[in-house]
Design a protein around this nucleic acid. Sequence first.
DNA 1: TCGAACTCATA
DNA 2: TATGAGTTCGA
Length: 455
Amino acid sequence: MSNKVPVVQHPHHVHPLTPLITYSNEHFTPGNPPPHLQADVDPKTGIPRPPHPPDISPYYPLSPGTVGQIPHPLGWLVPQQGQPVYPITTGGFRHPYPTALTVNASMSSLLSSRFPPHMVPPHHSLHTTGIPHPAIVTPNVKQESSHSDIGSLNSSKHQDAKKEEEKKKQPHIKKPLNAFMLYMKEMRAKVVAECTLKESAAINQILGRRWHALSREEQAKYYELARKERQLHMQLYPGWSARDNYAGNYQGKKKKRKREKQAGEGNEHREYFPNPCLSLPPITDLSAPKKCRARFGLDQQNNWCGPCRRKKKCIRYIQGEGSCASPPSSDGSLLESPPSSPSMISPSPSSKESKPQTEQMQPLSLTMKPPPLLSSSQHQHLSMAPPPPLALLDNSGAGKTSGSAHNGSLDPSDVSSSRSTGSASSRPISACHSHSLLPSSAPTQPLSLVTKSID
DNA sequence: TCGAACTCATA
DNA sequence: TATGAGTTCGA
């Protein structure tokens, strides 16, 4: 990941509101020189960059001089005397934030934020503000590849390294955000606020569910937005294509090993838990330890069955003990006893074909990152813990997530308390989920999800 | 399969 | 501080 240069990206800077929130200079971090006095050159990349205050998305095409004016976020895209190159649909995106910020503005900033001016190819000189193009990341040319000098045993490797380095010197043109990404960017903050979630993975899951809960119309807007962004991207970088981006701009970034998608695991959970927050069981990985992993532990992976090694469905116990496929059903949670009828799964309006039932049985292994290295005994402990009582979330009528309408709380305290209390409480998750079912049990607490394992 | 955004944990 | 892992979806 040495090539992933966060030069122009800062996780917290993408909040759609930041452009408005942070316009005031008083918001600038004390000690920071006034933006206009700041050197605009990124020390790392040498690329001029906008003197954004820390809170402002570096993408946001605001030059210091524009502070206070709040120009149209797409201003840089708007040719002096022409129509915006990048017409933004004014379709009614919902307002993701409580502020008066229009979604259009928000979305516009999302878009424009990726296309600040100065990185635009020369022939597309749309602006002269000298703001780096967020979609272009000049990778840090690190010395890491110089290790090939050592002995230069392998001249070919050396050459490769050089080539790679040269590649690195070329700015990396980021892919335009796809529809989901746009949606994610916009909604992340909201989800975080609602659920007080910190774990990006969990948030993304929620966002994914919400995404599918969106009406087609809403999705279409994002698709359209993404399409436009792609078009714009293509305009800005005529030679660019997703493929090229991969083949040409690929900087040798180490691939993340993607978690094996456990047979559509994600989707069925989506179906089960329309409520973004509620949908995340406190301990999603509980099921995993029931497999070879639990049995043998991490230190005996050689004993695991193949699928388990690949984090796939354990075949051994499905066939042998069946514990994986059908964990002891102590409380009748849905997880343990898959829906007997498809009606249990209320398809979201835009959901794709429902997954095979077998997939529905897949344990939910999201959100919860189990302790990095659980000892076998710990795994055993986990495996003996009551199965995640995901229960009862009959999504009917809830398929369409209406944002904060789902005000379920997954406050860890709820979970823990519910665990130690009454019978119904032996289902921590259901307790959480039940907020929507049993409103009385849950005052309006900030949503929170337990993303860490519970003691 | 990769890459996009994002956060957290770790070396 | 940098990197990897983890999640999502689209291309």
